[in-house]
């Protein structure tokens, strides 16, 4: 194994294959980070070091890119990812109150993960489903016109 990450050998060999495809191409950095994050669920430091080496980009610059874009995370995420849309259309239809309810329900602030590792919460800007606000997504599922009262039922469905 090339480094002591607990993520396991299979992931590492997939990462190797990915890096081989883009070796020496600094302009592919963002696309490589997307795929690496898909593999690991987040971007551990060891992975960033390997990406930096393969693409021939200084680690500081890789970190600069990772911290610039909100899609990338260097912390592991929960099993279920809740995204609350706070675009304008959702906002005027009550996304603020909805977010308050979710925060209360899970005891979380946006950007955090519950202690049991079940849920991560984040705020996003416009999911493009403006006709149906307020909208949240849990993993791949879109929930439209969510009233705060419905939140406990929605979350319960994912807890099982």
């Amino acid at each position: 194994m090339s480094f002591g990450c607990k993520c396991g050998g299979e992931l590492n060999s997939k990462l190797d294959a990915l890096l081989d495809r883009y070796r020496g191409q600094p302009s592919a950095l963002i696309q490589v980070l997307h795929q690496a994050q898909e593999l690991y669920g987040y971007l551990p430091r060891k992975v960033l070091q390997r990406v930096a080496g393969a693409l021939n980009v200084p680690l500081s610059q890789v970190y600069g890119v990772v911290s610039f874009y909100s899609f990338f995370t260097i912390h592991p995420k929960g099993k279920h990812q809740i995204s609350v849309c706070k675009g304008t259309a959702c906002y005027v239809r009550g996304a603020g109150q909805l977010l308050d309810r979710i925060k209360e329900e899970l005891g979380l602030k946006p950007g955090e993960t519950t202690e049991d590792g079940q849920f991560s919460l984040e705020v996003v800007r416009c999911l493009g489903a403006c006709g149906l606000g307020p909208v949240i997504t849990v993993d791949e599922d879109v929930h439209a016109r969510v009233q705060p009262e419905r939140m406990s039922d929605i979350l319960a469905a994912y807890r099982q």
């Binding site: 600094p26 302009s27 592919a28 950095l29 963002i30 696309q31 980070l33 997307h34 980009v57 890119v65 610039f68 874009y69 909100s70 899609f71 990338f72 996003v124 800007r125």
Partner: peptide, 20 residues
């Protein structure tokens, strides 16, 4: 594919992002 930065809709920022 972008990575979640609103400013990348600005054309010079977008070009920087394409360049990685």
């Amino acid at each position: 594919v972008g990575a979640g930065a609103f400013v990348c809709g600005e054309e010079t920022a977008l070009l920087a992002s394409i360049e990685g």
